[in-house]
């Protein structure tokens, strides 16, 4: 895997050490507000952005932390967005 990932605990590590945890969709909505359709949409549907996306990764062969990174899905490079707030959160 060419991807390098910045783990907030362990630093920059090889992508092999991590497991992908999907797009960042925000916390689960409350049960009451959910219909079957909106529930399926939350669980199964993704935005599949061609560009910079916020996503979850798990450091399985490392510290065992879940964290988010920004990744450009076109270049498969982690995007440095620490100072950039213009990137919209994927909802």
């Amino acid at each position: 895997m060419a991807l390098l990932i910045n783990c907030p605990v362990c630093g920059k590590r090889n992508g092999y050490e991590f497991r992908y945890g999907g797009e960042d969709k925000g916390p689960r909505p409350d049960d009451e507000s959910l219909s079957q359709a909106s529930w399926c949409d939350y669980v199964h549907n993704n935005n599949c952005v061609a560009g910079i996306q916020k996503e979850w990764w798990f450091h399985k062969d490392g510290c065992g932390a879940w964290f988010t990174i920004y990744r450009d899905t076109r270049t498969n490079l982690e995007a440095d967005t620490s100072a950039d707030t213009s990137i919209p959160e994927v909802k």
């Binding site: 689960r28 065992g64 932390a65 879940w66």
Partner: peptide
């Protein structure tokens, strides 16, 4: 298991 529990509490 540990990964699973941490994943499902990641926003909390």
């Amino acid at each position: 298991t540990a990964e699973w529990i941490r994943y499902h509490t990641r926003y909390d």
